[in-house]
């Protein structure tokens, strides 16, 4: 529901990261990592990005979203697994003390930027 705000943050970070020496920079691709547990719907993010990137160097850029699975580790027996469902109880020892190692990412990994003609 807050994908619009997230899209605006992405545009800001991306625009600030464009090397200053480039003339007429055009961002071709933005590589993102989005965890499965992050409250972000990739399709909504793409839609919002398309809208808010207009008239910015990121207009038309491809949003490449790598979805990161939810990896959990048991604090009691150190067993680790990939959670397919939101069940955070150790599959091995039934302990409820579980750390979530991944799955909440919402990161910009890199951008690909070129000079426009």
């Amino acid at each position: 529901m807050h994908e619009m705000g997230i899209a605006m943050e992405i545009i800001k970070i991306v625009t600030d990261s464009i090397p200053k020496h480039l003339k007429n920079p055009k961002v071709e691709k933005i590589n993102l990592k989005v965890g499965k547990l992050a409250a972000v719907v990739p399709e909504s993010l793409r839609f919002c990005f398309e809208v808010v990137s207009q008239n910015t160097p990121a207009e038309g850029a491809l949003l490449h979203i790598e979805e990161i699975p939810v990896n959990a580790m048991c604090q009691s027996c150190s067993y680790s697994w990939t959670a397919i469902e939101p069940v955070f109880i150790c599959e091995k020892c039934n302990s409820g003390s579980v750390d979530l190692l991944t799955g909440r990412e919402l990161d910009i990994v890199s951008i690909e930027v070129e000079e426009d003609g």
């Binding site: 970070i13 990261s17 993102l32 990161d107 910009i108 890199s110």
Partner: peptide, 13 residues
Amino acid sequence: MEVKLVKKVLSVN
């Protein structure tokens, strides 16, 4: 050219 960032989108917040 590729620019590496590794930045949290919500880092300002």
